[in-house]
Structures are given as structure tokens and as C-alpha cells.
Design a protein around this nucleic acid. Structure first.
Lengths: 232, 232
DNA sequence: AAGTGGTCTAGACCACGGC
DNA sequence: CCGTGGTCTAGACCACTTC
């Protein structure tokens, strides 16, 4: 492990342990260099990328300080993670699980040739026993042949892909708009027909930048809202 | 201007001039150091922050390359900028312009004391002569006393704040959900009553991290969708 | 004045990619 | 193999903040 990463790890550990709280001063660059027996440039590099990750704030002439607690904006999280983060017990019901080969638009979004066989999964997502969303997701059937309905009912899709296929998911591009519930959706989500829904079409990419999952989600707008941070 | 910024500027200029296209190789770190008469570390610093800004991709053993064209994900843009980016002629109609002092929730979002006087502006936003959205925005009345209705009808709020008050807007936190149009909104946006709308509540911050503007926007979902990128 | 972060030098060795 | 980016050294001066 490079020296600068060791320095970062040491600082992160002190923050996680609660030894350093937001606003507290970190050791100066020169102190860090001395303590870790590295040159000033290396200590600076360590702080530089901690700063870019939002862990730390540097003020010239004054020092380096622990940044305010991270707000989880623009974070890609599985449904399970979202729910547990809000301390709601997550649950899912698989409505359907099957293979389709006539979804050229979805295939295109996954950068696959039009006729490719896809696994199509329809789920109702629940939190605290209330339905939150209706999600339809697609992955390549040939690539993820080990993905079965029982496996999905046990664990989350994210974790299956990460564990069984060694695919690290990295980011998602989302298209968000509003729509209103049709009769079936309304019944499944236990809302009045034509109630407003947040519609999110999501392409989830691996660390290599390859599209892996396509998700169409319909979210009850009385139970869900997006938090986004945009930059100028 | 620091040497590393000069190097960045030189590279950015070559990209903007079309001399370097996405995927093209940039000069190597050693070449840049020689050309600009700086040490290797300085050339590396220049490329390092260009990479973090997504301008450039570095591949060890291979070289540094112009990144694919920036997708405008998670970009804070004024309505005018959004429309011109889609080559639609932007227009706005100011429906109301006045001072309110009984909006404690809005004041709170702007980190002002509850009774603070606020300028409240209601506008219909149009693109290509079609109504797109209904926006209500709030700014501190005491701080932005030069903000008048005629000024707003001439230029955008963003540009007034940036030019007249030297405030650089930096980022926005948004809360997005779906709702349906009430009778007035439907009439103003020329959509059927109860049609689905995208509701965006936005707090826009200055570079100093101070909240400046609060905006409540109702967007026709048939004309507008959000593009978001989320990271794991 | 002392200490901090910001920039910079002129070298070095390593790990990786493509030929 | 050679060239690339990735890490690192042991110093230096500057601009800024704090006291």
C-alpha cells in the first residue's frame, strides 16, 4: 500500500473511531510528514485526495479540518440500503421472473444487440410493510445465468452480482419524470388510480463503464423523493 | 497564475479549439514538463486535477487522453441555459413579484430568521412558445433590494445575482417528487387538470456555501425530465 | 513572527501497456 | 523493450492566517 494511502487510512480511522469530530483540526502537513516518515509532497498528496473526496477541508494559513458529516447526495444505493438507511425494514415481492427476447429498447440501453435474451424481473418493493415502488429490471440472460428466482428472493440483486459475478457496480444514469398510476400499478401499490408517480429509468454501470442493469421504477410520490445535488 | 494552471489552460484551449478531440492523446507528463519548463511533479499536478474534473483520462502505461464529451449530468443550469442547450428559445412571464414576510419554512431553508422579508417571484417558463414549468422563487428582500420586476423581465435571475451582487452560485440541493396539477396550474401550463407534474424544491447555494435562492418548480412531465448520475 | 497550506524543483524507482 | 503513468524524496519560496 502506497504511503499516501496509509496516511489517509490513519486519518479515516481516527475519524471513524470518533477521535476526530467534524471541525477538528488534523495534524499539519509537516507534522504528518514527520510522523509517517515521508516527504512533505507525499503528506500533501494524502490530504489532497481526502479533500477532493470531501472528508477534509483545508484552509490556507489556518490548517486542515474534518469536514462536516457527509450528506449522501447522488449516492447509488440498492433499495435495501435505502430502506435500512431510513430505518425501515425492506422487503420485496417478486411478481414475475422470466426471459424475454423482444425488448430492443432495453437491449440498446444495455449496449446489447436487439434480439439478446434478457432476464426480466418485476418486483414490488416494500418498506415497513407498505408498498413503496414497482420495479422492473433487466439483465443479460446469457451473462447472468446463475441468477434465479429463489436466489433473488433471498438476497439483493446488487449483492448477487457483486458476489457471484465479481461485478462492481459503480454509477447509474437516471432519467426522472412524473406519470400517473394505471389501474394495475395503483392496485399493487395500494394507491388511488391516476395518483402521481415518480418514474425513474436507470442504467447501472460497472466500474469498467459497461452497462449491466436496466431498471424501470415507479415510486409512490407520497413515500419517496429524490435528493440530488447539482453543481455549477 | 500558477504554472500548473497555465498548463491546464493550454490543454483546455486546444480541446475547445477542436484541435484535440475525445480519445486523442495528450502529450505525456514528461513532454508537458519539458515544453512548459516545469518539473514532472508540476505537470502531473496539472493533469491530476484535469482528470478529477473529468476533462481527461489517464491510463497507466498508455497515456493521457481527452475524455468523452462531457455529459451534462448533475449540472446546475439556469432555465435559460437549459433551453438554449436544447436549442429552444427560452421565455418567461412574470406572474407576480412582491414581498412576503410570513414564509417561515422558506426562510428556514435559506437559513434566515422566520419573519425575514423575502422577494417572491412567480414565473411561467416557456420554451419554443410552449409553457414548460411554473416556478416560484424566493430571495432575501433586504439583501437583494436592487432586484426589481423590470430587471427580471430583461435578464435571468442567475445573471443578475452574479453581475449585480458578485454572488457566484455554486451548487443546489434538490428534492424531487411527483404531484398532480391543480386547476390554476393546469390552466397556466395548458395541460389537463390532475396531469402528473415533476415537483422540484431547490435550494441554491453560493460558492461560500450560503443558501441564496429557494425555488419551487412544477414541471410538465411530458416536456421535461431530469438526468442524474449517481455514484456508488 | 510563527505556523499553515500552495506551489515548485530535479531528480529517483516502480508497475504497467503496447510493440 | 521502451514509454507511460504512479509514487516518492528533501529540500525551497510564497501567500495567507493567527497571535
Amino acid at each position: 500500500m502506497p504511503a499516501y494511502k496509509k496516511i489517509q487510512a490513519a486519518i479515516l480511522q481516527r475519524i471513524e473511531a470518533g477521535e476526530l469530530k467534524p471541525g477538528d483540526a488534523i495534524q499539519s502537513e509537516r507534522e504528518l510528514a514527520k510522523i509517517h516518515q515521508v516527504s512533505l509532497m507525499t503528506a500533501r498528496h494524502a490530504l489532497g485526495s481526502l479533500e477532493r473526496d470531501g472528508v477534509v477541508l483545508r484552509r490556507r494559513g489556518s490548517g486542515t479540518f474534518v469536514a462536516p458529516p457527509k450528506v449522501h447526495f447522488n449516492k447509488l444505493m440498492s433499495f435495501t440500503e435505502q430502506m435500512t438507511g431510513r430505518s425501515l425494514r425492506p422487503a420485496s415481492t417478486v411478481l414475475s421472473f422470466g426471459i424475454v427476447d423482444e425488448e430492443p429498447e432495453v437491449a440498446a440501453r444495455l449496449a446489447l444487440t436487439p434480439g439478446t435474451r434478457l432476464i426480466r424481473i418485476e418486483r414490488v418493493r416494500q418498506g415497513a410493510d407498505e408498498p413503496f415502488a414497482l420495479e422492473t429490471c433487466y439483465v443479460s440472460a446469457d451473462e447472468f445465468s446463475k441468477l434465479t428466482r429463489p436466489a433473488l428472493e433471498r438476497g439483493s440483486l446488487f449483492s448477487i452480482l457483486e458476489r457471484e459475478y465479481d461485478i462492481e457496480l459503480s454509477y447509474a444514469d437516471e432519467e426522472v419524470d412524473a406519470t400517473s398510476a394505471d389501474a394495475t400499478t395503483a392496485r399493487l401499490l395500494r394507491i388511488p388510480p391516476a395518483a402521481p408517480l415518480l418514474r425513474i429509468r436507470q442504467v447501472i454501470y460497472s466500474t469498467k463503464g459497461r452497462p449491466i442493469i436496466y431498471v424501470l421504477g415507479l415510486y409512490r410520490s407520497d413515500r419517496h423523493n429524490l435528493l440530488i445535488r447539482r453543481f455549477r
